[in-house]
Structures are given as structure tokens and as C-alpha cells.
Nucleic acid binder design. Structure first.
Lengths: 226, 226
DNA sequence: CCGTAAATGTCGTCG
DNA sequence: CGACGACGTTTACGG
């Protein structure tokens, strides 16, 4: 990883055109060839960048030895050009491959918990299959309700419109199966946005807000992911 | 901006829980109090971070002077804890506020151009309203065709499936209005993906590929965004 | 390589 | 401040 702090100008041409006037910035070139240009605010988002896979070419300006140009290109024809005008810091570091991070609290875990206790979604609900396959992808949970009717469950951490659309597509396919139809839709999330709720209601899909911590508290520790 | 390269462990507790085992990484603390921890790959995304507004507290471990702990917290109660085990580099830089970047080619500009010349979409098309409101959000353009029929236009830079879904939802709502129904759908983009085209066709929505440069060339310079 | 779904998405805008 | 949609979304995962 190469770390440079320099006054520079930056130009990006690709999905759009963007230009950064001359100013001091942090430039990070990583081992995978990627480059990011950061200002002194916003932790997450670089001002400009090139994602891997891409390649970096460094050119010395023949007319002016003070000017060095970094040209980063990718297969899609996007180009990021950085002209270094004044370098305040320049160092190289060997970091090695990162062991990666361990997460908890994601959708996968919610799915495991709800698969173990489908009655948390609705009294009498029983699990038929987790990740039930369809032509366009797996449904999170396929269940049967107390009356024996099939119920397709889509699980999200945060329930938004996208999730309702996704469940709608699954329902359309599942209802073509004579063994299953008519299939009810159930949209489960820790939090459901008003617009998603309206759309779901309009499509005849029920919404259930689930409490992650409560589910965790009542489940069998053996079945936990972590 | 403070730049540290160090062997460290990182823990995040907030929207989820995450842990990074000990390894060498880049840590950037910015003027707004935000902190990002980067591995030697992926230009854009940090391994861990805390977005502003947040505050950084640096504590010297009383038992072991080699261990320094950074604790970053925000109003929402999220906590990022970084324990520095071995520091390879540590420097501070004054960057000042960035002049910011200049963009071009975004969807907003396309919408302005097409609102000014709806005939670029279809001969005889006239604009009724830009950002026409519906219960689930505004339709980019509401027009009337040469026969007087209402036409809802959804504009994207790149036309993909979710854009077609969006337009479908608008059409469903607009068609409930007796003053408008039957409403035609028109999906306009600089580039339309095959899957989006198929879905649009299935829904009876027409697709129009628009040439941004050509539109720009023929429009009135007064109406430009930039 | 393309298509889809997830994300601690982040970021602007508008109510 | 919250909801909503755009973003050069990025990133991971399957076929």
C-alpha cells in the first residue's frame, strides 16, 4: 500500500465526467491496483476512486519534473487521472492479506432464528423448507399455516420496497405450482418502511415486524450461527 | 488528517457487531472526527469505519504503554474500538476544506433536457408536468401524446429492471385516476439492459434509448444545469 | 463474465 | 429529523 499526501488535480471519465481542482488530498494506492483520493472529511466515501480490477501507470512529465501523473484504467474504459503538483508525504507499506472481519446480526442469522421458530411470525406456522428454490432464486422460508395453506416468507433486516418486489416475483412463480397455489406472502423484517408497507398491503402481502434480540433470547443456543 | 499504519484489532458495535483480528492496517482519522480502517484491497470500502458526526477519544493503556486504544462514538450509540498493538507509521497533515468536485452526466440533467424537448422521446409528445406527484412518489415526466393519451415517462441513466418496476408501480396508481387512464408507460435511458427491455415489453411499456450528447447539443443553453 | 441481492451502504433532497 | 430515491453505488455470490 502506497500512501501519498499531495496537492493534486483529479479527473475521472467513465460512467460520468468529474473534475477536482487543485488542493491537498490523501491518495491511497492498494495492492490490488485500486486507487482512492480522500479529502479531510467523510470516513467512508472517497472523492474519487478506481475500483479493482484496474491498473495504475505512473508517468513522469518530461517538461516539468515536479509534475507526476498517475493514470488508472480499467477494462470498461474508465480513466482516473491524478496530477501530483506538490508532494507532502509519500510512503509504502507491506500489509499482507487481511484475515477479514467477523459479523453478527445480519439477515442470514435472522433467517436461521425464524426457521427455528416460525410461530414467531404467526401462530401455528410450520416450516416446510428454508431457501426453497424457484426459477429466479430461493425463497427465504416456505411454510404452511394452521389451515394448511402455503406461505412464502421474505426476510429482511430492513423492509423496503425492493424486498416487497422480490417477494412478489417469488409469489408469482410459486402460484404457478398446483401443489402450492394459492400461496400467501409474508414480509418479515426488524423494521418496515411505510412505503414498503403500503405496497405490500396493495399486493395482499402481510407484514410482520420481528424483534431480533427477543428471537435470540428465546432460541436454542445450539442452533446459533456463532 | 491523521494517518496511521499499525497492527491493530478493531471492534464495532452498533447496527451490527463486527470484529477484526490483529493485522497490519491503514487507519485514517479525518478533521470531522470520522475514522476509517482500510486493508490493502478494495479502493472504496473500509473494513470498518465510523461516519460523522462522531467523536474520537484516544486512551493510553495504563498497564501497557505499548497499547493505545481509539474509541470512536456517535449519537446513535454506535462504538468503534481500535487497539493499536504496533505502530509502523503515524503522521498528521493539514489539508483544509476541499473545493469539491464538478460532475456531469447525471439523471437530473437528462430529465431537464427531456422535459425541454419531449419530442426527442416521441413525435408530438407534449409535457404536462415534471415530477408529477403520486402517492408513492413523483413520476419523472407526465406527458400527452399526439392522440391526447396520458404518457408516464421514467428516466434513467442506465435502464435496468428496478426502473421498469418503478414505472410499473406508477402506472398502476396513475391508471386509477379516471382523468388519466389509460396511461401509457415510456422507459427512457441512455442504455437499456436486455433484461429490462424484456420486462418492459412484458408489461406493455415502451423503451426509448436517448442520446445525451445529441440532446445537449440541440437544447437551449439557457436551460442547462451547468 | 452477467445478473441478482445485500449493505453498518452513503449522500442529497424534500416533507 | 425521517422517508425516499440515486449512486461512477460497491461488494459478494451464482450460474
Amino acid at each position: 500500500m502506497r500512501i501519498v499526501v499531495a496537492r493534486c488535480t483529479v479527473d475521472y471519465t467513465g460512467r460520468l465526467s468529474a473534475h477536482l481542482p487543485s488542493a491537498p488530498r490523501l491518495i491511497v494506492a492498494k495492492a490490488d491496483g485500486s486507487v482512492a483520493v480522500h479529502a479531510d472529511d467523510r470516513a467512508y466515501k472517497p472523492l474519487n476512486w478506481m475500483s479493482p480490477p484496474c491498473s495504475l501507470a505512473i508517468e513522469q512529465n518530461p517538461d516539468d519534473s515536479d509534475l507526476v501523473t498517475w493514470r488508472v484504467t480499467n477494462r470498461a474504459g474508465e480513466v482516473l487521472t491524478i496530477v501530483l503538483e506538490e508532494v507532502f508525504h509519500d510512503s509504502e507499506h507491506q500489509l499482507g492479506t487481511d484475515p477479514g472481519l467477523v459479523k453478527d446480526g445480519v439477515e442470514a442469522h435472522l433467517q436461521v432464528l425464524l426457521a427455528a421458530q416460525p410461530t414467531a411470525l404467526e401462530p401455528g406456522l410450520t416450516l416446510v423448507r428454508r431457501e426453497h428454490p424457484t426459477a429466479i432464486g430461493p425463497v427465504d422460508l416456505l411454510c404452511r399455516d394452521v389451515a394448511g395453506q402455503a406461505v412464502a416468507v421474505e426476510i429482511k433486516r430492513r423492509g423496503e420496497i425492493d424486498g416487497v418486489e422480490q417477494l412478489t416475483r417469488y409469489l408469482e412463480l410459486l402460484n404457478r405450482d398446483p401443489h402450492l397455489t394459492p400461496v400467501r406472502g409474508l414480509f418479515a423484517a426488524q423494521e418496515i418502511k411505510p412505503q414498503a408497507r403500503i405496497l405490500a398491503s396493495d399486493r395482499g402481502i402481510e407484514c410482520v415486524v420481528v424483534d431480533y434480540d427477543a428471537l435470540r433470547g428465546t432460541d436454542d443456543p445450539e442452533s446459533r450461527l456463532f
